[in-house]
Computed example of a mutant assay.
Amino acid sequence: MSIQPPPPRAQPLQRLRSLDGLRGVAAIVVVAYHSLLISPTLSGIVLANQVAEPGSFWDVLLNSPLRIFIAGNEAVIVFFVLSGLVLTLQVRRERDFNWGTYFPRRLVRLYLPMFASIVFAVIVTLLLHRDREASDSLWVQFYTYPDFDPKFAIQAADVFNGTPDFNSPLWSLRWEVLFSLLLPVFVLIASRGRKLAWAAIALAPLVVLIGYEYTVLPLVYLPAFIVGIALAKLFGVRDATIDAAQLAQPVTPWWGHVAWFAGAVASLFLLILHWLLQPQYGANTHVAFVSSALIVLGAAGIVTVAARWKPAVRVLSLPPIHWLGRISFSLYLVHAPILIATANVAHDLPWPVQAIIGVAISFGVAELFTRFVDVPSHRLSKKIGRTAPAPAARASTPAA
C-alpha cells in the first residue's frame, strides 16, 4: 500500500499582509498632515481660510497632486474601507461565525486602546500644555488646554456624543464603532450576491453626495465601510490562506501592469480631486460635493490595488512598511497630543524642527503603545471568543 504525500501546506495570504502595509502608509499620511499643521502658515490656510501665496511651497503642496502626501482626511476613508473589508473576511472565514462573541470582542478591540489613548492624552495635556499663545500655529493653539477640565476626558470617551478635541483623531472611532454594531445587517445584505456588491460600490458616491448636500454625517462616512464589504464579496476570499494552485497564477502581461498602474493613479486622483478643484469652484458648491463624493471610489481603488496588484502587494509587504501597519492604530491614537505638546515645549525652535521631534517621539510611543496596549487588547479580544460557549450548531453531530 503506497503512502500518499501530504497536501501542500497553505501559504499566508499575502494580500492581507499588504493591506496591513496600506494601513501603515495611510497612518503616515495622517501624521504628516498634522505635523505640517504646526506651521503657522499652513494652519492659517486650513483653519482661517487664508490664501496660499501663488507659487509658494504651500500653494504647490496644497493645489497640486502633491496633496496626496498630506491627504489626512482621505486616508481615514481608506481606513474605513479597510475595516469593512477585513471585518467581512473575518466573518466569512468561519462557517459558524459566533455573533454572540463578536460584539464584546470587537468593542474590547476598539475601546481598550481608545481609553488608554485618552489617559495618555490627559497625562500629556496636564504635564506639557503650558501656554496657548506659545505657538503661532492656530492648530496648536486650538488644541492646547492649559486649564484642563476632567470633563474633556469623559467627553472624549463618549464616541457618539462627545467632543474629543484634546485628541482629535478619536472622531473617527464613532464611525468604526457604529459600523461594527451594524456589521451583521450589512453582511446579511452583502450575502445576496456579487451583483449587489457591484451596485453598492456604484451607489456609494451618490449616498455620500446626499450626505454632503444635507449634512447627514452617517451617509458621508458609512458608505466607505459598505464598499469594503462589497470588495470582500468581489474578492471571493473565504479565509486567510491560499493553496498552491492559487499561487501558481500566470504572470501578468506588461499591459496588465500598465492597467493596474493607471488604476492606481486614477484612484489617487479621485482621492484629492476635490482639493484640486477647490481653488476654482470653492469648498461649498455642488462641484465640491460631487468631487468629494468620489473619494470613496478612490479609496476602494487603492485598497483593490493593494490587495490584487502583485508589485503593490510586494512593496506593501516589505518589513518596514508592514511594521508601520503593525503600529498604525497606536500611531493614529497617540500622535496628535504628542505633536501639540512638542510645539508647546519646543516653541522657540523652528516649526520644522518641532515637527520632526514630535514625529520621532510619536513613533517611539506608538511602538510602546502597540506592545503594552494594542497587542494585549487584541489578545484579550481573542480570549473572549475562545472562552465563550460554542454555538449550538457546532455542538450537534450531523446525521449519517
Rank of each mutant, 00 (worst) to 15 (best):
G193R: 01
A190L: 10
L247G: 08
A202Y: 01
L206T: 14
P218R: 01
F186K: 05
P184N: 10
Y212L: 12
P205C: 07
Y214W: 13
A197M: 04
L203A: 15
Y214A: 10
V185K: 06
P223M: 03
F186D: 05
V216K: 02
V185I: 15
G228L: 08
D239V: 00
L188Y: 14
L206C: 09
S191Y: 04
T241P: 01
V187Q: 11
R194Q: 07
A248M: 03
V208L: 05
L247H: 04
F225I: 12
T215P: 02
Q246D: 06
E213T: 14
G193E: 05
S191I: 00
P218W: 06
R238C: 02
A190H: 09
V187F: 13
Y212P: 01
I189A: 15
P223Y: 03
G228M: 03
P184G: 05
V216G: 00
A190N: 06
A232V: 08
Y212V: 02
F235L: 15
L222S: 09
L219S: 09
L247F: 00
L247V: 12
A232R: 08
V251I: 10
Q246S: 12
T241C: 05
K233C: 00
V251F: 05
Q249H: 11
L222K: 04
T215F: 07
L222C: 03
D243L: 10
I229W: 09
V227P: 02
P250S: 10
V207Q: 05
R238Y: 09
P184A: 01
G236W: 07
E213R: 14
I201V: 11
L196Y: 03
I201Y: 03
P250L: 01
A202M: 06
A240P: 02
I210N: 00
D243I: 15
L182T: 04
L234M: 10
L183E: 08
I226A: 07
F186M: 12
E213Y: 08
Q246M: 11
I189C: 10
D243F: 05
K233L: 04
V208A: 04
P205V: 04
I229C: 13
G228Y: 05
A245H: 04
A202V: 13
G228N: 08
D239C: 02
E213Q: 15
I226V: 15
S191N: 12
T215I: 00
D239E: 11
A248Q: 11
V251H: 11
